[in-house]
Every structure is written in C-alpha cells, then in structure tokens.
Write a protein that binds this DNA or RNA. Structure first.
Lengths: 337, 337
DNA sequence: GCCCTTAATGTGTCCGTTCACATGATGGGA
DNA sequence: TCCCATCATGTGAACGGACACATTAAGGGC
C-alpha cells in the first residue's frame, strides 16, 4: 500500500524510519546476537511498514554466496521421475534457504551440455544436481573440473563419490528375476537410449540376471523411453513370437508394448508377460495393471540436497547406500503358457 | 586449468591481464560500440585464459535488473501439462537471456501461496508466471498488487489482461459436443478439484454444452486429477448405470475410470463412452486408446514468455486470443447401445 | 602545423548488503 | 568516584560490475 512509487526501499530507508543505523537493521535481518528487543521490534515494524525485502543480489555480492543450487536436467520425454525429483529438490532446498535454478538441455551433444552448464555456472551456483544421466554429461563435468559440490542422480558406480540414486541395477535384476522365477526362458529387454546411464544400468542388471540363470541372452532393443516407441517396437518384435516375456526400461514403453500385443491379438499375461520400471501413478490403472519396479524419486531428491548441503557445510556425508527399489507385482506377469 | 586457486577472477583481473581498463572489459562484455578489434581480441583472450565469468549478482545490483522470471507452480499430481509448459518457458526465457526461478506450492491455502510468492519476490524477479491455477492464488496476487508483469496460465477470463491459456471452455464443449453428437443423453462429468480454475472452466464448458442441447444436467463429481480417483469414482458411479458417457477432467482420471469399467465388466466404448482432456503422450496407448482433447502446453509456455518480454520492453502485446484445443477421436467413444 | 571533431579508452561513483572494527552507553566492583 | 568489562549500536570499507563523464589519441580540413 504505502511506498508504491519509485525505487524499492533499502536497508537505509528502513534504518532511517526505525531511527537506527543500517547495521542494526542488517543485524535484525540476520538475527545476530545482541539486539535489544525493543530495537528489534522497531526495526521489524519499519520493515513491515515499508514492505521491505532484502535485495538478494546485493547480499550475494557481499557474502559471495549465491544461495542457489543449479539443476541440470535432461529434456526427458518421460516426465514422472525427473519431475518428482526436481519438485522434491526444490522443496528441500527452499527449506534450507536455497533456491534452485533449472536448466534443461534438449540434446546430449557436448556443446549443448556445456552451454547449459555455463548458464548455470555463470549464476555462481554453490552446488549442482545433474538429472541428465547421459553418459557424456560426465565427461563434460570432468573436463570442467567443477569447483562446486555436485551430485548426479544415477547409480552405475562410475563416480560413486558424486552419484546418488535408486539402485537401478538391483531394480532391473528384481524385474528380470521375477520373470525367470515364473518360468520364462526367452526374455526380451526394451532398453532406454544408449547414452543414458539409467538405461545402461537397467540393461546391465537385466544381463546379469539372465547370465546368472544361464539363459540365452538376446540383444536388447534400444528405445527412447516413449510409449510410441514401445508400441512400434512391439509391432515389429511380435512378428516373431519367439519370446514369452518382456522387461521394458520404463512404464511408458511397457504401455506401448502392451498396446501392440493387443493389436496383434496376444493376451497379456496369458501369452506374454511384461514388467515395467518406475511405477508411475498411472501404472496401476493400465490394462492390465502393470507389474513394475517402484523407485522413490522424491527420496532421491531429498538425499541429493542433503548430500550437497552437508558438503557445503564441510561435513562429509557417507550415506551413499543406494536406495532400494521395490518390485510391485500386478497383473501383467504370469507363468508361460 | 590456470587460476584454479582462491577467488574467482573479476573484471579488473581481466583488465590487468589484457592491459586495458576495467571499463573496456565491461564494454567488450556488453558488446558496446567503439571497441577496436585488436583490443577486443586481447580482452577475449584474457577472459578465456582466466576462465572468467561475469558475476551475475554484481551485474544485477548495478543494473537493478535480475534477469530472472519467477514461476509459481502448483504441486500438480498430473505432471504432463505443467511440466511441458515449464520446460518451454525455461527454453524461451533462456534464449532471451533470462533465467527462471521456480517455486512449487503444495497447498492452495493463502499462507503457502504467500510464502511461495514471497520467496520469488525476494529474488527481485522481473516478471512472474503462475501455473498454479487455484482460484485463491488470484486473490493473493491482487492483494499484493504486484509491481511486476505477470501472466497466469488459465482461461476463464477473470483477468483477461493477465491470463493466457488454451481455451479450456471451448475444449470442454468440444468433448461434450462429441458425446452429444454421438447420441448420448446421460453424460457424467468427473471434474478436477473445485479450487482449480482449469477444473472450473472445463466444468463450465461441459454445462454450457449440456444446456445448449437441452439435456439433463447431472451434478459433476469433484476429483483430484489422479487416476486413483477416477478408478474409485468409477467403482461408485457404476453401481448405478444410469449414464452412458463420461467426460473426465483429464486423461488420468479417464484412465482410472476405464479401469473401473473393466473391473465391473462394462465394455468401453460399447456400453460406456469416455473422453479425457490433455492428450498426454500415453493416452494413445491406453486400452482402448483414449478419445481426448489435445492442448498445446508448449505453445502456452512460449506465449507466456513472449507476453512478459513484450511488457518488460514496454510493448503491449494484444495477442490474448486463446489457443484452440483440438478433439482427438480415438476408440473410447461410440454411439450408445 | 594548428585546431577541431570523433573514435577509443580511462576514472570516479554508485548499486544494497555484509564484515571488521570503532565507538558509545550501562553497570558492577574496588 | 573511577575504571573496566560488557552489551548495544554505529562507521568505513569492500564485494564486482555498470553508468556518466573525463580524458587521450588519431584523423581531417585549412
């Protein structure tokens, strides 16, 4: 209401109104020690009256702390996981007095990664979360020899000090083992894009388990995470019905694959078992409800911030135990015919 | 590699190395007129060598421009739309040299809205995009009498100067009319939460069309956007099979409803027609593939930034024509039995 | 060769905040 | 009554840039 005109009030305006020095106001803002309650109240009243907000840019400049955490995110076509993680990151960061700055990169070539990273770095971020688990991102990061703490949300153990994630390999093994335990011997894997670490890890888990059971290894199909891909891949693959189960790299591709099954007149799970990955909220309502691997994305986000804050505060946090994924059995898997 | 130690280099370090004054460096950075090419190259070389990055906080302080656009986003349970819009906003903002700062609010009570807005405002954002179309957000914004340009992504025409969106009412009418044209006379609507403007608008469109056709109006069910809700609502509603078609407020609720249909042994579309809203990428692969209303979220994001930038540059942009949604007919709708 | 214009570059100040240090009140012990 | 610790508050600088203005070098007309 008041002071609607001209410049925003600054700390000296507040000081003048409260009849104290600007330093006193600063002390109140940063609730330092040794402020007489009466003065504090006066200052607070002045702040209120002027609708004063501290200028973050000035504060950042003076303290040399931006209180910003950068998030580098891949332009994923499957939204659920990354979005959940980012929301959670934002929440915990804000609670800790940080803000986040997000940059999306649309392709994984190093120029675009570099430009995204540059955009972030130029904001003097204090820490970095990378949710763009494309292999190449790591090379770029290594080249830049980042001076800020960072974590990447993945789990292949390439760089265990900086990575943090649901254990993708374990999840993939869980999924594959479930199919094997049901008696399937010819299992197909529809993977995510080759340059995604998550995709690589899930494929790894799949292969590990197949080998452990001494089954025939089939070359996985490389997809792009979308339901569309799962559908078209299904149409192709199902021309030769030489497999009885599919482990899809994510729920969307599983959905597309089921669509193809229906169109080809193949019963799920009677003639074909399917397992997805992620447990997106819709998965329980697919037809049939999808058996899948649940991962706790929000927890990943929480831990990311917690790890970064610890590092910012000089504490080394050693809780790099991967978060365990969980098999959710619904109705797309059964014993082979 | 070089200068790995201590403080980040500043403009004077660059100037010293290049053998010019700091002002010359500043000119190169802002590519002002009148710089001798030789000098520019020297400066550029020094920048490169020191791996210098301008300090955004200092720049913001000096220019009184944060180059930040705030995004206030609801913690939506249905991710596709908002996420797509945000990604698009980020992209276009970055192209225009702005960064975005996102704040998620998890509930729509005014305290939480206010705190989210405060968080944003304290970063001296230059403009604001609100993707939290809860009714109450508007009241808070009005109370604060914001001094920055803002747009909200909705379309009820409450505040036409500041709103921008796919025309939700038209979309809902399209969906409803499609059902009516097929011959349905008892049509149910499962709406989004009452405090969401989008939900209100879709309901409005539904009612308009029902009235226009002189059909019986049934009280819509108030949902929460999730597939779970659609499912449980379906289980309840289908006890009384006194309707032959459903218009769901979004695709997720439609999916859950279809799940319920199947469980109750009701054939879709034979005995029950269903239309969703949004056209999420998975909708084409639901079983049966979902008839729905497509809206172009990315375009909404693009226009939001474009409108804000225009306002920041003093141009008034009058292109508030709502973006037309589109009916996508797939396989969940048919003539009533 | 001189003066004036203009292109190219340099100097002082300010942006709003915090930090290190300085100063002013208050009061208790001798 | 004086002094010194302690609490409370004030003062000058600095952070890293941008802007307004000042200055210097180069070029053209006479």
């Amino acid at each position: 209401m008041a002071g609607e005109k001209g410049k925003a009030p600054n700390i000296r305006d507040v000081a003048a109104l409260a009849g104290v020095s600007y330093q006193t106001v600063s002390r109140v803002l940063n609730d330092s020690e040794s402020i007489k309650p009466t003065t504090r109240d006066k200052v607070l009243a002045a702040i209120e009256q002027l609708n004063y907000r501290p200028n973050q840019a000035a504060r950042a400049l003076a303290t040399n702390r931006s209180r910003t955490i950068g998030v580098l995110s891949a332009d994923a076509k499957a939204f659920y996981g990354p979005t959940t993680a980012i929301t959670s990151i934002e929440q915990y960061a804000r609670e800790a007095g940080y803000r986040i700055s997000i940059t999306n990169i649309s392709s994984s070539d190093s120029a675009s990664i570099k430009s995204g990273l540059d955009h972030l770095l130029s904001q003097s971020i204090e820490a970095l979360v990378v949710i763009a688990p494309q292999v190449r991102v790591f090379d770029v990061i290594r080249d830049l020899s980042l001076s800020v703490p960072f974590v990447t949300l993945e789990s292949t153990g390439r760089d265990p000090r900086h990575s943090l994630s649901v254990d993708q390999i374990a999840g993939a093994r869980l999924a594959t083992k479930h199919l094997i335990d049901l008696g399937h011997e010819e299992i197909m894997h529809i993977s995510g894009p080759q340059d995604w670490i998550e995709a690589e890890a899930r494929m790894q888990g799949f292969l590990d388990e197949i080998n452990a059971a001494d089954l025939r290894v089939r070359a996985p199909i490389l997809g792009d995470w979308t339901a569309h891909f799962g559908y078209y891949a299904g149409l192709e693959l199902l021309k030769f019905r030489d497999f009885s189960a599919v482990f899809a790299g994510n729920d969307q591709m599983a959905l597309g694959f089921m669509h193809a099954c229906r169109e080809m007149g193949i019963d799920v799970p009677g003639e074909m078992s399917i397992v997805g990955f992620d447990d997106i909220p819709e998965a329980a309502h697919f037809w049939p409800p999808l058996t899948t691997i649940r991962q706790n994305f929000a927890e990943v986000g929480r831990r990311a911030i917690s790890a970064l804050l610890a590092e910012l505060n000089g504490v080394t946090e050693d809780d790099h135990t991967p978060i365990r994924p969980e098999l959710v059995v619904r109705e797309t898997t059964a014993r082979p015919a």
